[in-house]
Design a protein around this nucleic acid. Sequence first.
DNA 1: GTGAAAGCGCTAACAT
DNA 2: ATGTTAGCGCTTTCAC
Lengths: 329, 329
Amino acid sequence: MVDIARLAGVSTSTVSRALSGSSLVNDETKKRVAELARSLNYTINIGAQNLRLSQNRTIAVVIPYDAANRQHVSDPFFLSMLGSLADAITDCGYDMLISRVDADRLDEAAQIYEGGRAIGIILIGQWQHHDQLNDLAVRRVPIVVWGAQLPQQYYCTVGSNNVEGGKLATEHLVSHGRSRIVFFGDRQLPEVSHRYAGYMQILENHHIPLREELYVSSAFTVESGKQALHQLLKSKIPFDAVFACSDLLAMTVISGLRTEGIHVPHDVAVVGYDDIELSQHFHPPLTTVKQSIDVAGRTLVEALVELMAGKAPSPLLLPTSLIVRSTSA
Amino acid sequence: MVDIARLAGVSTSTVSRALSGSSLVNDETKKRVAELARSLNYTINIGAQNLRLSQNRTIAVVIPYDAANRQHVSDPFFLSMLGSLADAITDCGYDMLISRVDADRLDEAAQIYEGGRAIGIILIGQWQHHDQLNDLAVRRVPIVVWGAQLPQQYYCTVGSNNVEGGKLATEHLVSHGRSRIVFFGDRQLPEVSHRYAGYMQILENHHIPLREELYVSSAFTVESGKQALHQLLKSKIPFDAVFACSDLLAMTVISGLRTEGIHVPHDVAVVGYDDIELSQHFHPPLTTVKQSIDVAGRTLVEALVELMAGKAPSPLLLPTSLIVRSTSA
DNA sequence: GTGAAAGCGCTAACAT
DNA sequence: ATGTTAGCGCTTTCAC
């Protein structure tokens, strides 16, 4: 900037004003400065500008990871969420910083905000870290979490209506005459526990006994899904349907069943969750509970913007819908 | 920082030194400062620190978008790349900024660097923007591009060996007795054109005539794939195999063929490209050319780090391998 | 319409 | 072992 000022024969103040389009500066000077800047490939230093203005246009997206398995992001739904957020954040004129933090040290996420790295945080992956998230909210860190709404919650969540999703899937299976429905997922996770609540409710409505042995715990990975299915088959517990907590898990289950000669949907009906793009191309095309990823991304950003504006957005529940295809008919 | 200094009864310099673990400061003072900082939830302001030290630990990942279709990131391979980069960048101790820029204004990417927003750029999506990328390199912007190595190239690329990939797929199909192999993709794109070159070469080796009508142009989207397949089927051109330029496209093709009563692999063999996670769970499990996403992410980051260190890393070609499953047997 | 000067939050000589 | 001072690149009062 000093260089431009020297070359243009004006002061840095004038250059600054010219570049920001201030009306106080002579049009001719403006033009001269603009040209000089272009020819020197000069761009304003955002860090310095931010410092001076005490401002910032960066939103951080935090993805916690388990220090134990240190597994990387691979679930298609999460990945799509990243894509959706990239678009939504860009569209709102913000920059997007991606940060992975140790799930046991979520408070580190606060430093991104408190250190001025970003003006707000979107966290994907609520897992079991309710208390840590509450701590963040109490510290007044502007944070919006993708996940389930829980009692005693001080932070803002955006998530799909998991109870409804659980009901939709279960009702559909029951209405097709299935009664031994395996619930496939990890109900320790808030979102999954809500889906399980929906599942239980529908069973109760239809006076179908809830069987603990039909609950199969599995994390959101292919590996975990394979193992869980293996256990289930080995146990010889009879079942005629599976409600899987993600499409990835549903596809894993269907593949596994197929290699055992069990036919989907004839022997076992399967319903997934998420409606990732590939689900419609799977064979058989997957019946699933749709969470709209586009809406999710936009809503998360909107909620965060509100929060940063000093308002207190209430937790948001996005509608889910059942997409009936061929794995359940 | 001023506050802490006042409360600790020392100067800001001492606080700064204490916080950075300088050996010049009394252990007792250090402890006092550290405690104060913790209790106030104080974190150093990275922006100011960067400004003062003229440093920066941020790497930008740029994803160009077509202003025309403004379609968002949705290809599973790209998305996985994002995940892989997030891990690789984090592991190297850098922050990751995601930025979408208009594909026709790639020079805007330079501002991310020149404006001090990031110290280096990884660009995913070379498309047809060879010249713009060269301009960036000439401007000495540290940039590494995921894509194909082209003649007259001044920027550094990392990409899989697309010629080899094309050969692998085609050789495999030919060796299974297929001779009317549809090439499914957009050969305007550098990476795809290399795959096409490999495809042509193998046909020539086997004295199989190259037929222009077996080239089917399709972008990397489901929609585009559906349409292209529709055109192909309508044209009644006979074919006994398809080499699709992404797994997503391959799955789209297989679904489309199935609804027409065409059996894969009996009537038509299909080979995809990428080996995304879902390919093994597809039915039938997809034969495909694997690009290792983990290696890709790490390699991109390594190349960029070298580049930033002032070295001139040569374009890198990652090996590909054929994963034979059931769509081609 | 333009310049001089102060300061955003931090660090590193240079004192002491 | 600690304080004083200057300055990273920018914007903005306040003068003129």
